[in-house]
Structures are given as C-alpha cells and as structure tokens.
Nucleic acid binder design. Structure first.
Lengths: 333, 333
DNA sequence: GCCCCTCTTGCAATCGATTACATAACTGCA
DNA sequence: TGCAGTTATGTAATCGATTGCAAGAGGGGC
C-alpha cells in the first residue's frame, strides 16, 4: 500500500537482508550466495524495484550517457553519423542522446557540458563558443571544428574534397564554374570555398562566382534564382554547391523554370545524402563516410573518457560519386 | 592547486560562509544579503564552481530533462516536430534530448523510462512494448500510438487524411488507384490503408492494389519497379503513398525509366516534408501540422508531469496540398 | 530595559545507492 | 582444540547539493 517508488531498503527488508546485499545482487551477483540471491531477486520482482539513476550517478560520478550536439537535425546528413556513434557507444555501455543546437537555446546547451550530466560530448557544430567548453566534460569534434579549441577531431579534408569536385567539372570542359557556399563564418564554408578557388587557379581559370547559401534547401533554390537572373553569356555552365540539400533546391528551381540538368547546367553537390541518388537526375556529389565518421568520433570519445587521448585529427577519405547531374557543357567555345 | 572539480564547500570556505548560503545564492538570491551575495558570487567565479547535477537531481527528484523517442531520425519528418517540442519545453525549464529507437538497442531504451533519468517521455514510436512503459515516467504519445496503452495522444486523423488524398485522385478522374503502405504492424499503416479502402468503396471503385513499403525512400523506389512491371492496361493511373519519402523514391525510379509524372502516373505523398515542394514535379501531399504536433505534445507532457492530465486524444487537422504531381489520367476510358 | 519581529545565516538531516572495512560463520589442517 | 583462510553479509561513510528548523543580530515600540 505504499504510494512511493520502492527503494533499495524496501527490497532489503522484504528479502530480510541489508541494502548492501541487494546492491551486490544487482552489480556483482556472483559474490552473493545463490540462495540469498534468489530471495533478493524475488523481492525485486515483487516490489517492482528499479534503481534510482540519480543516486547511482552521484555515487559513481558518471552518467552512462553521451550527448551529441548537432547544428540542424532537419538535415538528414547527420542521421547516419549519429547511427554510427550509437553503434559504437551502445556496446560500450553508453546511451547516446542528441540535442539540436538551433532549437535549444544557446545558453542551455552548455548545461550538457557538465560531467554530472553527460560523460562526454560529441560536438558537430563549430559555432559553439570554445571558452565555454574548456575544462569540462571530455569533448570530441566531428565534421566541423572550433578554431583554437584543442580536442580530438574527426573530419574529412574539405579543401581537397572541393578540389576533387571542381576538377571533375573542369575535366568535363567547364570553364565558368560557380560555387554556392555555406553559411558565413562556418569552417566548412571557408575550406570548401578555398578548395574551389585552388582548383580553378591551378588550371588557370578565373575565380569562381560565389553565391551565398547556408546549406539549406531553400538557400539553394535562392541561389538558382540568382543564377537564372544572369545573362546567358555570363551564366556559369557548372555549379558546385557546398551541400546536397542546396543542390536539391537548386535543381528543383532550375527545372521549375523549364531548364534541364545537366543539359543547361551541371550540378555537383556535397555529402551524398541518401535522397540524392533517387532524384532525377541523380546527383553527382562528394561522398562523406558518414557512418565511419560517427564510429570514429565515438571511439575517440571513449578513449578520451578513459583519459589516454591526444587532441589530434582523424581525417577520413571522401569519394567522388559521379551520377547524372554533370556533363560536358552544351557548346564548347 | 586542487585537481578535483570545486564543490560547494570549496566555495563556501573561500567566501567564509556555509554551504547553505552558497546554495541560496544560486537558487534564491534575493533572500541573501547583498554584500554576502557579492562575496559568494566572487568565490564562485574564482573557483569556477559549477553545481553537480547528479546531486541536485537526487535531492530534487527531478532531472529537468525530457526524452523524445523517435523511430527514425534519418526521416526529416521528425525534425520539425522536435523543434516544436523544444520551443515549448525550453521556456518551461526542460531540456529536450532525443534518442533513436532504431539505432539504440530496444533494451537500453527503457532505461530512459525512469523518473530518475528523465522527467517525462514523448514517444513517437508505436512499436514500443506497452507493458514496459507502464507506471513509470509520465508519457505522451505523438503521431503514432501504442494500442492498449493509456496515455495522452497527439495525432492527426490518419484515416480521414487518406480519404482526403484518395478523393482528390478520384476527383481527377482516376479509377485504378494503388496504395503503397507503411511497415507491417504499424498503426499508421493500418489507418491510412483503411482510409484508402473507404474512399474507393464509397465511390464504388475496386479495392486498391497495395504495394508493400516501410516509409523509406528505398521502399518507394522498389514499389515503383513493381508498378512498372505491370502490364500497361493493369497499371494504376494514380498512386497514393503513405509517406513523402516513399513518394520521392517512387517518382525518382519512374523518371529514371523514362516515364513522366504526372503524365504517366499521378503521385500523392503524405507528410509534406520540406523537400517535396522543391522537387520536379513538386509533390501533391497531405500536410501534417508538424510544429503544432510537437508543441501540443510538449504541452500535454508538461501538464501530465504536473499531474493533472487525462489520457485523451488531441487530434490536429491536416491539409490537402495540391502541387504538380497529380493530374487527370492520360486517356479516359 | 524588555519584548517582539524581521532579516540573515548556520546546522544537520536528507535524497538513494555504493562500497571499504569489519565481522561472523564455516572449513580444513596441525 | 586452536588457528589460518575463505566466504557471505552487515555497518556506516560517502557522493554533493538542498532545505526545514533554529538561532543570532538588529530595529522599533512601549
């Protein structure tokens, strides 16, 4: 007739033992006598006892949880990374919890950066303030990184990846190549733009026309309207966009206006999210090894929690995926 | 020269007060003398003290966190719902944490269903075992629901929504209409199929041909290959798919094989995820009020945590969104 | 000068589990 | 019988913050 949740002492009393014994049955069964163990287990069933996690966390000084800070959950780019993390963390005894840095207020986010809240943090958002993160919970950075913040990073070589993409377009014969960049201030934006510039310069081509973007579908659509507004003779014949989501928006708008891809414009994306292989035309893009990024980040974090990790980089290889959205330019000049 | 994290007692000693006073400065500043407060605040700064959450949770018997259990984070359908939740939960003092029921092991999921881990649970996955959820943390169901599990539900009328979709196709003149359903055993699958059947029967049309699916893009593509394998005279002229993701896959495959939408087949989706308005052709679909679903679910949960909630349903209205993927059938017979 | 009231602050119990240490019971061997 | 060694269990301190209760200080009225 007790209304409160049963505590360990309720179980102990029912089984006629001390709380210590009950605790041992739960965490170290083999050191308890078989008969006693049976008694305690039965008492646990009867009372429906479930250990209080807060008390356990306080005592153990660990939470058994890892929090991933994601800049934008609506971007399907992240889901496979998260799956990779969970695949490594679960067997190691950690729960993966996810928080969206956009929807949660900036301030409340740092509440996660507490050892008493999470055993570790995987940060996928490079715009978080470095100084707030310092000297707290172990942190690993993945995909994006925070300049001046020393922590293990798991990433790709964004500059090289952009070079790969642009050289493909150059190889097809394009000479006027545009870039749609990511949000201002983002480290990926810088790196991918730099790679684009490098590749063009290396081939003696003019600097790219750059359209603003923010990785979102809608910003890709907007870039398309700007591209469409250019006189035909000035229009870049190929566009390299810093995310697949933007490439989708770009192609959608271009097609909506009656033009065809790749006949009228070649389009390269970045990320290789699942969707883009099913589009018409299927998108040529740079594949990031998302699952591997997640797994590596989780491994690095576990190592760091154990205390033996160095703040160095793990750089994973990308892959150029050629599909149907890129082709030689219509007329060669 | 202390290596350990500062505790409240370290602050108290430095400021020359008791731990009680430090605690009050943090939680109830106005009852502390201004000068004492200043002293304590300075000591907090100097030591870099941050309260231990585990201890606080144990004492308060609350965690300040709410966990959302999502069946598939890679589906962008959920992100806006989660944003809606966070928008309501944050001002109410709750953090929103998200877990993917696919990637986390089934067993470890129920660890979240503990009052000592989370103050509440928003379940978006109807396939979780009801008996495990009972008598634990307050639960609210959203979108999907668990048969036989009494909890507040926030949902749409899926059957009515399917009727809306199919009647649109019938109104365009289609008579052979197919349905691509969701995963077996899912409550949404049943409801949307039932609505499809109802609408056709109400208009004296034959029962729909049903293709298997699981809401995923790839299963939509697969349904398209089955559709394409049918003799032209038997092919349904319109297809209603139980998710937008499947509709994307379906259209992609159909276009890939050289057919055109809606010329050769009309396609209706379900959900109205952001992407589908940018596709070519833009998808006609059923819009779920995703943000509102999230907000309502959060409100219901907060009420339930406060203790005064009834396990009744909140049903939100859907909207028929007509775009370019549906048109009258090519030849009328 | 005395009493009451308000404002501040400290003391110590408390949240619920874990675990180092102590102790008791039992075995086996000299 | 006595002692060392092993096994099983209980006692009580501990994790770190919160908060009810008590008490001291200071002010005002009579």
């Amino acid at each position: 007739m007790q209304h409160h949740r049963p505590k360990i002492i309720d179980v102990a009393r029912l089984a006629g033992v001390s709380t210590a014994t009950v605790s041992r049955v739960l965490s170290n069964p083999q050191i308890v006598n078989a008969e006693t163990r049976r008694l305690v287990e039965q008492a646990i069933c009867e009372t429906g006892y479930r250990p209080n996690q807060a008390a356990r966390n306080l005592r153990h000084q660990r939470t058994g949880g890892v929090v991933a800070l994601v800049p934008d959950l609506s971007n399907p780019f992240f889901s496979q990374i998260l799956a990779g993390m969970a695949a490594v963390l679960a067997p190691a005894g950690y729960n993966l919890l996810i928080a969206d840095t956009r929807t949660e207020g900036r301030g409340s986010l740092l509440r996660y950066a507490e050892p008493s809240r999470a055993d570790g943090l995987i940060v996928l958002d490079g715009s978080l303030p470095a100084d707030e993160l310092t000297r707290r919970t172990p942190v690993v950075l993945a995909c994006e990184w925070i300049p001046g913040f020393a922590a293990p990073r798991v990433k790709i070589d964004n500059r090289q990846a952009a070079i790969l993409a642009v050289e493909h377009l150059i190889g097809l014969g394009h000479r006027r190549i545009a870039h749609v960049e990511g949000p201002a201030g983002n480290v990926l934006t810088e790196a991918r733009l730099a790679g684009t510039r490098d590749a063009l310069a290396a081939h003696g081509l003019p600097a790219p026309r750059v359209f603003a973007g923010d990785f979102s579908l809608d910003s890709g659509r907007h870039a398309a309207t700007e591209w469409l507004a250019l006189p035909i003779t000035e229009r870049p014949t190929a566009v390299f966009l810093a995310s697949d989501a933007m490439a989708c928006g770009f192609i959608g708008e271009v097609q909506h206006r009656g033009l065809k891809v790749p006949r009228d414009v070649s389009v390269m994306g970045f990320d290789d999210i699942e969707l883009v292989s099913h589009m018409a035309p299927a998108l040529s893009t740079i594949r990031q090894p998302r699952e591997a990024i997640g797994r590596q980040a989780a491994h690095r974090l576990i190592a760091r929690i154990a205390g033996d990790a160095q703040p160095d980089d793990t750089v994973l290889p990308v892959e150029l995926v050629l599909r149907a959205s890129t082709a030689p330019p219509a007329e060669s000049d």
